[in-house]
Amino acid sequence: MKSLKIPAYVFLALALFFIYAPIAVMMLMGFNQSRINQFPFEFDLVWFEALLHNERLLQGTGNSLLIAATSSVIATAVGTLAALAMRGIRRRTRAFLNLLLIPPITIPWLILAVALLLMFFWLRVDRSLLTLMLGHVTLQIPYTVLIVSTQYVTISSNYEDAAASLGASPFRIFGWVILPLIIPSVVAAFAFSFAISFDNFVVSYFLAPSGFSTLPVEIYTAIRTGFTPEINAVSTIVFFASILLVLPAARYLRFNF
């Protein structure tokens, strides 16, 4: 494959350029004085200062973090519990249970969101933080079940059988034997859920109560109404924060580097 090395590297570089160029431009604009995201570049921190006074954007970011953290905890807990029950059931049952996870993953989120909106209206449930959270967890559960069960079924049942035969209670078996073995996939499930929720626009857009918004919803309204260069500033912060969170998680999940 030696002759292919150079074209491979060139392609890799081009692809990385495609992925990162807009993000790099956005970051530069965060530090640029231009009001309409144009060059020339003149270093300035005005937009970070403006961000400090942009209550809506800060509030939206806070809401996004809060919802992502809470919904991910719920989805990871519920998903892990279901994943643990996946072992020792008949193949067909497991195939069926796995099949049930596919529609929520593949159906366009727009459809799920408007269906939930209709149901809540019909039941006269007001849109609230709770309805929003319910929606986010629904999107996360299939992923958490799949991620944790994929690892759990590869682990030999000898460990828990041994613990059980020595008289350990189910809670003790879970806490001392199973959890330490599956913790990488539990962390991965949490990280993935967090990303899904933090990134989610559609469900928040349809299910958020009026006057409440998340960062993606704020950006959507901002783009539709004109430029808000503070978005570059907040996006830069979000991007670096996500790198800071992903790197240790990846290290922990044994990506060797």
């Binding site: 993000i23 990303a195 990134d199 950006i219 901002a222 979000v238 996500s242």
Partner: peptide
């Protein structure tokens, strides 16, 4: 990039 918001990327 997948870990940051897709709306951020659209804005970019």
């Amino acid at each position: 990039p997948f870990w940051s918001s897709s709306l951020i990327r659209i804005y970019a």
